[in-house]
Nucleic acid binder design. Structure first.
Length: 488
RNA sequence: GGCUCCUUGGUCAAGCGGCUAAGACACCGCCCUCUCACGGCGGAAACACGGGUUCGAUUCCCGUAGGAGUCACCA
């Protein structure tokens, strides 16, 4: 057994969606886990679907996730070029070989004829081999006249074809269900099915890994390999990733692409980790893997055959785990833009806020909303001063806020050491001096400072970040708000 | 519709003839706690159905049902 070689062969038609990324990941892992090579090949044989910039999306995504390729556009290799549109001459040459062997033929049928045929035959349409009966002379004449043509594969009508897939096992189909598929299109470009076989052979790909939507066209691949007399690669078809029980994840529906997820505040490492486990299992209960660790532990046997649903909730959880494990510095670096967005020109300490929210952040884009109250006290209903479990209501809160204000005013120790622990100590003392529960001081203060039912951090943590002046201002605001309401 | 594939809790999944059928997410409850979050403890929740094979089937075989894929000069 020689060196394992796999390839990722995306067509640059849009965004890199999660299914594509996972396919690339598995292809990469299958090669790496066996000390093999991973190749990138761009399949741009459909000029109509070409999207400007789509190739960069592929390169950028692979780079962002750390999936590196040994051969491919930009890095070179012995079997290039690695962009199919630059290889068009090659395919025609191999197609002609097939014609000589009697395994393919020219077809001059017009699209119109095919369409009407299809219409009359319905869903079970296969090409009627109209052009197979053309004599050599007729073909030559048509060619000489410059009639547009395609080249079709001549699939045997008799017998059955069996191929072996590593995850799905042996699959057998009757040959008469197979169509004489087009190999070379009228524009001279190969179809995916043909280019794939030719390139995989020429590039010495040993393991063909792809989505299982190709399962039903694989018999035709096999016949092609046999016609050429080439070795058949190991097939590994992957189950699809679903959006829900009935629909695949697709970019058409605006479902998550890798870049969308990153934009939403998911970390590339978390995304990669999550999708590695969507369709593959290490066998045990381990859930956290870096790319490197996957390279060591990945086995083809762990591949699943049934489709799996992409669960944003679990991804979120995993992302949160990754965020929590970040060093404070790394988290601050990632969170900084979101914090600044929420803070505007307020003077709050970004490092302190960052420390407050790291444990509480699932995805980065959640940040601004969580901390926007630091910049400006939001409008809020005095209803939130009432809390049964905290044993507080508007009256108690008003009293608590007044006591707190007076404490701050008279306690100059606090003025010099305005820190959360110090404040906490002082507030608790204040509570016991007045025969109140801690919560009866802390809840009203936290409420007055945040204007929210929930906030990251408690009363004293918020106070420290807000600073003495702003804290006083907000407490005063709370007092007058409550006074006004209790009078009226 | 033909052909092919798939089927363990709501979701991801372990299991590869004998188990009280793991674990994780989500959910619920309790605890911790200056709210929330984190953390800890506990709970509810699954082998699609029917036949075989076998001493014994979640596991093997055959049907049924449900789902998916595919039947393009798209990949």
């Amino acid at each position: 057994m020689g060196e394992v070689r796999t390839r990722f062969a995306p067509s640059p038609t849009g965004f890199m969606h999660i299914g594509n990324l996972r396919t690339a990941l598995y292809e990469y892992l299958i090669a790496r886990s066996q000390g093999g090579k991973f190749i990138l090949r761009i399949e741009d044989t459909d000029q109509e679907r070409y999207v400007e910039g789509a190739m960069d999306v592929v390169y950028d995504t692979l780079k962002a996730t750390g999936i590196s390729y040994d051969e491919g556009p930009g890095v070179g290799g012995d079997y290039g070029p690695y962009i199919q549109s630059e290889r068009r001459g090659i395919y025609m040459e191999y197609a002609r070989q097939l014609i000589e062997k009697g395994a393919a033929y020219y077809c001059f049928c017009t699209k119109e004829r095919l369409d009407s045929l299809r219409e009359s035959e319905g869903a079970s349409f296969t090409y009627d081999r109209h052009c197979l009966s053309l004599t050599k002379e007729e073909v030559e004449r048509n060619l000489a006249e410059g009639k547009p043509f395609v080249i079709r594969q001549k699939v045997p009508r008799e017998g059955r074809t069996t191929f072996t897939d590593v995850v799905y096992g042996d699959i057998t189909v009757d040959n008469d269900t197979l169509d004489d598929q087009i190999l070379i299109k009228s524009d001279g470009m190969p179809t995916y099915n043909f280019a794939n076989v030719v390139d995989d052979h020429l590039m010495k790909i040993t393991h063909v890994v792809r989505g299982n939507e190709y399962l039903s066209s694989t018999p035709k691949y096999n016949i092609l390999y046999q016609s050429f007399g080439w070795d058949i690669p190991v097939y590994i078809h992957l189950p699809s990733i679903m959006k829900d029980a009935h629909n695949k994840l697709s970019k058409r529906n605006g479902d998550a692409s890798f870049q969308d997820l990153v934009k939403k505040g998911y970390l590339p490492e978390a995304i990669l980790n999550y999708i590695a486990l969507l369709g593959w299992s290490p066998g045990g209960t381990r859930e956290f893997y870096t790319l490197k660790e996957l390279e060591e532990d990945f086995t083809i046997e762990g591949l699943n055959k049934s489709p799996s649903i992409f669960d944003t909730e679990k991804l979120k959880w995993m992302n949160a785990e990754y965020i929590r494990k970040l060093s404070p510095e790394d988290f601050t670096a990632l969170a900084r833009p979101y914090i600044e967005e929420a803070l505007g020109n307020s003077a709050c300490d970004i490092g302190k806020i960052s420390a407050l929210i790291q444990q509480r952040t699932e995805i980065l884009t959640d940040i601004p909303d969580k901390i926007s109250f630091f910049r400006e006290l939001p409008e809020y209903s005095s209803e939130i001063y009432c809390h049964k479990k905290m044993k507080t209501d508007r009256e108690i809160s008003l009293r608590a806020l007044k006591l707190t204000r007076d404490l701050i005013l008279r306690n100059d120790e606090l003025e010099h050491e305005w820190t959360s622990p110090k404040l906490y100590e002082a507030f608790c003392l204040l509570a016991s001096e007045n025969e109140m529960k801690n919560s009866q001081i802390l809840w009203p203060v936290r409420t007055a400072l945040s204007g929210r039912e929930v906030s990251p951090g408690g009363a004293t943590e918020l106070a420290e970040i807000l600073g003495r002046g702003e804290t006083m201002k907000r407490i005063e605001a709370g007092i007058s708000k409550l006074e006004k309401e209790l009078e009226g």
